[in-house]
Structures are given as structure tokens and as C-alpha cells.
């Protein structure tokens, strides 16, 4: 027995070193591992909230039709019925938030329509396509109502 523990102080010193090492490790860990790490997995739980906090720029169709109640009824009459407003009008979350501060944007049909309807062999066969050089003129909005493309645009009085 006495021979085994004859040099106790070595053990004590060793234990002290270990304890110090563990302490340093725990301190470093507390310092470097961010809050919430490991709550859901090997990542910082707060990153989920960070990702959620990003601002929205496209308000979504539901927002638009809350105020523009007449447009969906008009759209329903034509083949553009299933296209959502901001597919043509662009991102308008700021306008939907406060229409007095940010105006709605009226896209120019001359630029807008060909983005979808320009003929291309890679497009599905059934999709209505035109070659502007052969079609009836560049001012699409003269003959097509953008909301109800099968109709002529309504004259505004």
C-alpha cells in the first residue's frame, strides 16, 4: 500500500493539472460555443430566427386583392387568371404596406408581354407564343387587355 501511494504529491499535482485543464476547456467552451448551439442540432438555434427576420419584398397575391378587389374578378375572365399580380407588377410589398408612400407600378406591356410570350422552341408547344416581327404590332396593350388578354382593352373615360 504505502509503496503504491508513496509519492502522493505526484498524484495531487497531476489531479491539479487535470482540473486546471478541464477548467480552461470549460471556460473556452462557454466563450466560443454560441448561445443555443445544440438546441436543435449541430448549429446555433438563433440562426433560424435570423433567417426568418429577412424582409419580404413580394407581398403576395392575397395582400394585393385585399385592396384591389375588382382586379381578380376581371382576371378570372381570361387566361391570365392564375398568374399572380407580382409576376407582372414586380415586388410591391412596400406599396401594399402603405400605398400613399410607395406607388403601385404599371408595367409597360411593350416590355412585359414578350418576357413570357416570345416564341422559343424550348417552350411547351401548347403555350401561346408570338414572334413580334410577325405579330400585329409592338404595342401589345392596344389590342390586348393585360388582365384579360383575350379581350381588347376597356376604354377608360
Amino acid at each position: 500500500m504505502s509503496r503504491l501511494f508513496g509519492h502522493k504529491e505526484h498524484l495531487v499535482r497531476m489531479a491539479g493539472l487535470f482540473a486546471a485543464g478541464i477548467l480552461v476547456f470549460l471556460l473556452a467552451r462557454a466563450l466560443f460555443v454560441p448561445k443555443g448551439f445544440g438546441t436543435y442540432g449541430h448549429y446555433r438555434a438563433g440562426a433560424l430566427a435570423d433567417n426568418r427576420a429577412y424582409p419580404v419584398k413580394f407581398a403576395g397575391r392575397d395582400a394585393c386583392v385585399e385592396c384591389h378587389t375588382d382586379v381578380p374578378d376581371a382576371l378570372k375572365a381570361g387566361k391570365h387568371a392564375r398568374i399572380r399580380c407580382e409576376a407582372c407588377h414586380g415586388p410591391l410589398a412596400a406599396h401594399a404596406q402603405d400605398p400613399t408612400k410607395a406607388k403601385g407600378v404599371k408595367p409597360d406591356p411593350k416590355v412585359l408581354c414578350v418576357k413570357c410570350h416570345l416564341a422559343n422552341v424550348a417552350k411547351p408547344q401548347g403555350f401561346p407564343q408570338i414572334d413580334p416581327k410577325e405579330h400585329l404590332g409592338p404595342n401589345c396593350g392596344e389590342c390586348h387587355d393585360p388582365h384579360v388578354p383575350g379581350q381588347e382593352p376597356q376604354k377608360k373615360g
Binding site: R52, Y54, V56, F58, I83, R84, E86, A87, P91, C116
Partner: peptide
């Protein structure tokens, strides 16, 4: 991010919102 900031608010992604077909 699959528009995580949108889908967690009940909106769809920006690409789905604007896909015409």
C-alpha cells in the same frame, strides 16, 4: 433558403409567387 422568411409567415417563395404557369 426556400424563402424561409416567407414560408414561415404563410407566404409562398418568391419564385413560386411569380411563376406564371
Amino acid at each position: 433558403s426556400l424563402c424561409y422568411h416567407r414560408i414561415t409567415k404563410g407566404l409562398t417563395t418568391a419564385c413560386c409567387e411569380t411563376c406564371p404557369t
